[in-house]
């Protein structure tokens, strides 16, 4: 086993010395089982006191770190953009990233299909958390409590988008995003797998992905509208 088991059970958060509203925190997951899952990652990532850049960046101290900030690591354009937009690795953003990397960072270089099982993700996160500063050591560190995010139901994912409606709605996107897929300054949104598109838009809607314009635009799209846009942009002919 690497590192101590994450000890949090019910942790009262003390902010800047004075007692604030008590936030109940539950253990993220089982770090020991997470260590086994880590085997999938360790081909590319190192962790621990000696960790260095390998195929991927080292993952020490990943919690609370701004995305794309390991010096000298050749990040993808997408990851760099997300980092500059303000993507910070927290329990929620890491969870979304590990579940399906491209949902959070469309053009990421990480060639990992994602972990579907929430428990496996939780265990892996518990393992990673052991290599970051912990609230038990630093009172002001981000809470380990999991925000109760509304996750996407299979029903939402199963909505078949109305392509014609999507085409109309797309005119709101193409004021900035180009239909031909060029991506200078503003990312390309065409030819995405529909599921990735849907998940990405919901990630903005739930404010997991940073960027105020996209949070606003996605924020007012209904589930059907997101599906319609995914259907349209996913099936454009070049």
């Amino acid at each position: 086993m690497r590192g101590a088991l994450f000890p949090v059970l019910a942790l009262a958060l003390i902010g800047a010395g004075q007692a604030q509203a008590q936030t109940r925190a539950t253990a993220i997951g089982d770090a020991e089982r997470g260590a086994e899952i880590w085997m999938f990652c360790s081909g590319c990532h190192q962790i621990g006191p000696e960790a260095e850049i390998s195929i991927g960046p080292p993952l020490n101290g990943i919690f609370g770190r701004r995305a794309a900030t390991v010096a000298d690591f050749p990040y993808s354009r997408s990851m760099t953009r997300m980092g500059r937009d303000g993507l910070t690795w927290t329990l929620d953003t890491l969870d979304a990233y590990i579940e399906n990397p491209r949902v959070l960072v469309s053009g990421t270089r990480m060639s990992f299909d994602g972990l579907e099982d929430p428990r496996e993700r939780a265990d892996l996160l518990a393992f990673l958390r052991d290599f970051s500063d912990r609230p038990s050591n630093i009172p002001e560190a981000a809470p380990t409590a999991r925000a109760d995010l509304p996750r996407l139901s299979e029903d939402t994912l199963a909505i078949v988008g109305d392509r014609a409606y999507g085409e109309y709605l797309s005119s709101e996107c193409t004021t900035c995003h180009q239909r031909d897929g060029s991506d200078q300054g503003i990312p390309s949104i065409v030819f995405w797998p529909q599921r990735d598109f849907v998940l990405a838009m919901h990630a903005y809607k739930q404010k997991l992905r940073p960027h105020p314009v996209m949070q606003m635009m996605a924020g007012r799209l209904s589930d059907e509208e997101i599906a319609a846009l995914a259907a349209y942009f996913g099936t454009l002919t070049p």
């Binding site: 500059r84 937009d85 004021t175 900035c176 995003h177 180009q178 200078q184 503003i186």
Partner: peptide
């Protein structure tokens, strides 16, 4: 500063987008 630069780059992308539109 890096966010401001990104915002500027975004405006360049927007300009290409809207004139194409």
């Amino acid at each position: 500063a890096d966010l401001r630069k990104l915002t500027y780059e975004e405006s360049l992308g927007w300009y290409s987008g809207i004139v194409a539109d």
